[in-house]
Design a protein around this nucleic acid. Structure first.
Lengths: 248, 248
DNA sequence: GAACGACATTCGGTATTGTCGAACAAGGGA
DNA sequence: TCCCTTGTTCGACAATACCGAATGTCGTTC
C-alpha cells in the first residue's frame, strides 16, 4: 500500500457539498497530517488538475475529476443499456428510479432518474446506503452469498423504523426474495419511503446490479402495486438479456 | 511534487471510453513503469475504491470517482444557477449549450445540454478544446489577460478551417469581443459548426465562465441570429447577477 | 499606516517508503 | 499435461516523502 496515494485520495474525499472549499490547515487537521505534508500533496494534486486553487488561498476540486467521471459512466455497460428503459419507467410511474451496485457492504447508486413530480429523496449518483436496509441492497444480497457474508461481518444497525437487524430474519427474507424475484423495502432506511427492486444479471449469470423504484408508500402500495412490480421485473430482465444473460 | 501521487493520477487517466478495462501490464507499458510498481499503485487505488477489479484479472474505474464527481458538480455555483436558464435556451433554439471554464490554455466544458433534434457534436462534460479556437474560449481570453498570456505561450495551431493562428489577429478580435459583449466561432475548431458565446462574471467582476450555443451555420446565421445573441447575452447576465455580479 | 496574527509556503536533514529486479503463482492455449 | 503469458509477492537499496522550523503573505486591528 502506497501511503502518499492513500493520503491523496483522502484529501480529495475531504471536499464535499457541505465543504466545497478548504484551506491547507483544515485539510491537515481533518486527516491528522502536518500542514507541510498536506501542502505537498495538495500542490501535486493541483498540478494534476484534480484540485484547483480558488482565489489565491483556498482549494476546491478540479476538472480532472469531471474527466474521470465521464469514463466511469461510459464504461459501465449497465448504464448505457439501462437508460432508455429507466426513462420509460419514470414516465409511467413517476417516483425515482435507481440502479445500484454492491460495494463494501453498501449499495452505490450508479444511476438515478427522478420525475419532476416525485417526492424528493436523499440519494444521488455515487451515494451509498447500507445494503440490508434498501430494496436494491436486499436483492443483491439475495443472489450473492459473498455480498451477504461481507454485510453480516460489518453488522446490522437500525437505519429506519423497519430495518431488519436480526441475521436470521434477514436470511429468511432473502430466500423469500429469491422465490419472488423482487424485493420490497418499506421505511427501512428512511421514514416513509417505499421501494421495490429487481435483479440484473450478467452474461455469466451473476447478479451485478439492481433496478429499483422509490416513492411514497401510499402510491406504491395502491392499486398499481402489482403493475409496478411486473414492470420493474420486466425492465430488469430486459437489461439482463441485453447484457447477454440467458434466462433458464 | 509527490511522484507516486502523480503516477496514481496518470494511472486513473489511462482509463477511457475506448479502453475502460486495463491489465497491469498495459498500464505499466503506457506509463513506462515497472509492472511491480504499477501493481502497487493499482492495488492502493483499488483499496481506496478508485479502481476496481474486474473478473479477477483486469481493472476498471471504481465508485469513488462517482462520489468525487458529485462534489465537483454541486460545488460549482455556476452549475446550479445556470441549469434552468440553459434548459430554456435549449427549448427555444435547439442546438447544444455549454458552460465552459478556462484551464491550462484550454476550455473545459463543465455543463453540456443538447436538444433531441440537435446535430450531434463531439463534446462531453469534462472534455477540452483549445481556447483560441472556440467561441467560449475567446470570450474567456477577451476578459482575462492572464488566460490570454498562458494561451499565447502554448502557441496557436490549426484546429479547423477558420482557426485564428496569428497572435495579432487574435488580439484584434478579442478587443472586438469586449466591445460587442459576445463572441462567435465559425468552423474554427471543427468543420461546419457555428458557436456563439457570452461571458459570465463573478461577484468580484472577474470572468469565470462562458455560456455558448452551438449549431449548424445555416440555422445559426439565419433570421434568428440576432435573437440568439440577445438571448445568450441575457442568460449570461442573469447568471452573473445570481452569482452576485453587479452590472456597471 | 504600522504592527500583529493567522495562515500558506519554502527549505534541509533524516528515516521511512516507494522502487527495482527477480522469483513465484495463476490462468489460458496448444 | 506442459508451456507461456500475465499478475502477484518478496527483499534490498536508494530515492523521496516527512517533519520541524523558518520565511513569506495576506487581512485585521489599534
Amino acid at each position: 500500500m502506497i501511503e502518499s496515494v492513500k493520503k491523496a485520495c483522502q484529501i480529495i474525499s475531504c471536499f464535499s457539498n457541505k465543504e466545497p472549499v478548504l484551506g491547507i490547515g483544515t485539510i491537515a487537521e481533518k486527516l491528522g497530517l502536518h500542514v507541510s505534508t498536506a501542502h505537498h500533496l495538495v500542490r501535486t494534486l493541483c498540478d494534476e488538475g484534480v484540485l484547483m486553487k480558488d482565489q489565491k488561498k483556498k482549494y476546491r476540486l478540479g476538472w480532472r475529476v469531471l474527466e474521470w467521471n465521464n469514463h466511469v459512466m461510459f464504461q459501465q455497460d449497465v448504464y448505457e443499456k439501462a437508460m432508455p428503459l429507466v426513462k420509460e419507467l419514470i414516465l409511467r410511474f413517476k417516483g425515482t428510479v435507481h440502479i445500484a451496485m454492491f460495494d463494501k457492504g453498501t449499495v452505490v447508486f450508479v444511476l438515478r432518474v427522478s420525475s419532476e413530480e416525485s417526492t424528493p429523496i436523499q440519494t444521488y449518483i455515487g451515494s451509498r446506503k447500507p445494503a440490508y436496509a434498501t430494496s436494491s441492497g436486499k436483492v443483491l444480497l439475495a443472489y450473492n452469498s459473498v455480498y451477504l457474508q461481507e454485510t453480516i461481518n460489518r453488522g446490522l444497525s437500525h437505519e429506519g423504523p423497519n430495518t431488519i437487524t436480526d441475521i436470521n430474519q434477514l436470511k429468511k427474507e432473502l430466500s423469500e426474495i429469491r422465490k419472488k424475484g423482487y424485493s420490497i423495502s418499506n421505511s427501512e432506511n428512511s421514514d416513509d419511503m417505499y421501494g421495490v427492486a429487481a435483479p440484473i444479471f450478467s452474461y455469466s449469470g451473476e447478479i451485478i446490479a439492481a433496478v429499483n423504484l422509490v416513492g411514497p408508500p401510499s402510491y406504491m402500495q395502491g392499486s398499481n402495486r402489482d403493475m409496478i412490480i411486473r414492470s420493474l421485473k420486466s425492465t430488469a430482465q430486459t437489461i439482463s438479456k441485453e447484457l447477454g444473460y440467458i434466462e433458464i
